[in-house]
């Protein structure tokens, strides 16, 4: 287990390095003046005096300042790292609550379908999950916003949830102030991601329930609930952990879209505003943060999986 963890950690470091390199390359080869703006902004007044740094020198500087946690400064937003970190909690709250909702929806629907396999309910839910699985996050968000915010407003009623933003003007004083702003965005992510998890859970449950030990558990007279959850779900859930690692980039990208739809001032929206405001430092800082989050999330999923299923440590390469 330990050697597996160390190897996995090494892979994560290489990946993080790769993300940073890809980001650097994106900027370096971009047309226009952006690159000198970005690459020199961290070093203050050097812009006008010295000659243009070469590829190697600039890359070294970039990696060095990254390692110090320095994402540069921009005219519009000041210290980029601080600017993004201030917005990180809103993105984290969205991602975590979206993920929790997705697992609850997905596993719940999947288990229900497997328990009622072949019935009309199962078919309807299958169709529903295919549709939800196919819908892009931004469209689901617009539909939810339409149903719970804009349709009531059109009818002259109070919207059921606050229109935009992350907190009431003047800031949230308690969690109760904060949650109404979170409901629809988290629900959007939960539906989009949960549909995939439901499809997986249904298939895995049916496979698990077809095993001999389930039949013998039923033969021993165990209750159907106990069979479903102790024998079926436990087997089916294990690979779900690694599936969550796969879903993580989806979750993060989904956050960008959902924040745009609901104007939540998280990192995703910061990136979008940065694009409009030509604020390259914030754009690249956001991309880097999402990239590192994906790497760390993948690492956590792999380690969890290795811990939950000790066979993996030896079986899975890298």
């Amino acid at each position: 287990m330990l050697s597996y963890a160390i190897r996995r950690l090494a892979v994560a470091v290489v990946l993080a390095f790769g993300v940073a390199t890809v980001c650097f390359a994106l900027v370096w080869f971009a047309p226009g003046d952006e690159r000198s703006d970005l690459l020199l902004s961290g070093r203050g007044a050097v812009v006008d005096t010295g000659p243009e740094p070469g590829l190697v020198e600039a890359y070294g500087d970039w990696v060095g300042s990254l390692l110090r946690g320095d994402l540069g400064t921009s005219e519009r937003s000041g210290n980029v790292a601080r600017w993004l970190l201030a917005r990180l909690p809103h993105t984290l709250a969205l991602s975590v609550s979206g993920l929790v909702l997705a697992v609850v929806f997905g596993v719940g629907v999947g288990v229900l379908q497997a328990a009622r396999a072949g019935t009309v309910l199962d078919r309807l839910l299958t169709l529903g999950t295919v549709v939800a699985y196919s819908a892009p996050a931004f469209w689901v968000g617009i539909l939810l916003g339409g149903a719970f915010i804009h349709k009531p407003m059109e009818l002259g009623m109070e919207p059921l949830f606050p229109l935009t933003g992350v907190a009431p003007p003047g800031g949230a004083t308690s969690l109760l102030d904060y949650i109404p702003y979170l409901v629809l965005p988290a629900l959007t992510l939960g539906i989009v991601l949960g549909a995939g998890i439901a499809r997986y859970t249904r298939a895995a449950m049916l496979e698990a329930l077809a095993q001999d030990y389930v039949r013998s558990a039923r033969a021993r007279g165990l209750s159907e609930m106990r069979v479903l959850f102790r024998h079926g779900l436990r087997t089916a859930l294990l690979p779900l952990i690694s599936l969550l690692g796969v879903y993580l980039p989806v979750l993060l990208t989904g956050a960008v879209f959902v924040e745009t739809v609901f104007s939540r001032t998280g990192i995703g929206l910061a990136m979008m505003e940065a694009i409009l405001g030509q604020d390259l430092q914030v754009l690249m800082g956001g991309a880097l943060m999402f990239g590192f989050a994906a790497v760390v999330g993948n690492l956590i999923a792999d380690l969890l999986y290795g811990w939950a299923d000790p066979r993996i440590g030896d079986a899975v390469r890298g």
């Binding site: 990946l15 890809v22 980001c23 980039p249 960008v256 694009i275 991309a287």
Partner: peptide, 15 residues
């Protein structure tokens, strides 16, 4: 493992 879409967003914004 790369968050490709976020990188694609950056790419589409720069190029």
């Amino acid at each position: 493992a790369l968050p490709k879409l976020v990188l694609l967003i950056a790419l589409a914004a720069l190029y």
